[in-house]
């Protein structure tokens, strides 16, 4: 039996708990620097130590992202990636990996243009487990969050330093799978995480939700990942990996070398996460 939807995410966090450790979530942009290489990177991530994977769906106007992911979006769009091709890439991945939870992350307009019901149906069929949509807040839940949950996919919401106690219940209400805590007010890839502040924030969140809490934004190195892994259920690394792929591609490296660089960085980060065993 192959787990699908929420169970695959829940199963992974349960397994991590049993191993008494926190997880590593890696982010890559679909089609960066091109479809073929991107698929090979994706396939290499679980063996290198990624416990859960976020696939970014490229958008021309990634308002919440810093320069690294903006550039990755442009590389991918230039390489001709579409929502359909992103889902096809996931389908390919699922042929060899049915255990690693995969979350699609992006902005609303490409999903809106695809059509929400069609997108959810196709994403589910492709083996997607959850969705993060940056620009659809709880105030617009009927747009995407509710339909996503209705088809049995997780809708993973971001909580941020500006989400105060009064607002938190609203953020948690239709969140499922896990909660993603954005460690700093800002865009991706800029600034460094503050583990002490994150520890306090995660405690505050955990008091209000039984969901696992992953922490992202500002985690680039193994030691940062280790520090966050001590206080959260998972550490998310995005821009550092995206930069690694971007630099390798810009340096004219062959696809296999790009995959090797991404895998090496993932191993390093996973090492950091695994050093931080939890009771």
């Amino acid at each position: 039996m192959v787990a699908t939807g929420e169970p695959r995410i829940a199963a992974r966090f349960a397994a991590l708990k049993a191993e008494k450790r926190s997880g590593l979530i890696t982010f890559l942009t679909a089609g960066d620097p091109n479809m073929e290489t991107s698929l090979e990177v994706l396939k290499a991530l679980p063996a290198a130590g990624a416990d859960l994977i976020e696939i970014g769906m490229p958008f021309t106007d990634p308002m919440a992202d810093g320069p690294a992911i903006q550039r990755a979006n442009l590389r991918a769009l230039k390489a001709g990636v579409t929502v359909k091709k992103t889902l096809a890439m996931l389908t390919q991945f699922r042929k060899t990996d049915q255990m690693t939870p995969v979350v699609l992350m992006g902005y609303y307009n490409p999903i809106h243009a695809y059509g929400v019901p069609a997108f959810l149906k196709d994403a589910k069929a492709a083996g997607c487990d959850g969705l993060i949509c940056v620009d659809v807040p709880p105030e617009e839940d009927q747009e995407l969050a509710l339909p996503t949950r209705a088809v049995g996919l997780s809708f993973i919401r971001l909580a941020t330093p500006t989400t105060d106690a009064k607002r938190l219940p609203k953020v948690l209400q239709n969140t499922s799978g896990f909660l993603y805590y954005v460690s700093l007010a800002g865009i991706t890839g800029v600034g460094a995480v503050d583990p002490a502040a994150v520890a306090a924030a995660v405690q505050r969140l955990k008091a209000k939700t039984p969901l696992p809490v992953a922490v992202g934004f500002g985690i680039r190195t193994a030691s940062q990942a280790e520090a966050i892994a001590r206080v959260a259920d998972a550490a998310v690394v995005g821009s550092a990996l995206v930069d690694c792929i971007g630099e390798a591609a810009a340096g004219g490296k062959k696809p296999a070398e790009i995959v090797a660089s991404a895998a090496a960085l993932t191993r390093e980060l996973a090492g950091g996460v695994r050093r931080a065993s939890r009771q």
Partner: peptide, 9 residues
């Protein structure tokens, strides 16, 4: 109001 959570408040 289609903005990220950071901006919502």
């Amino acid at each position: 109001r289609f903005v990220s959570e950071t901006l919502m408040p």
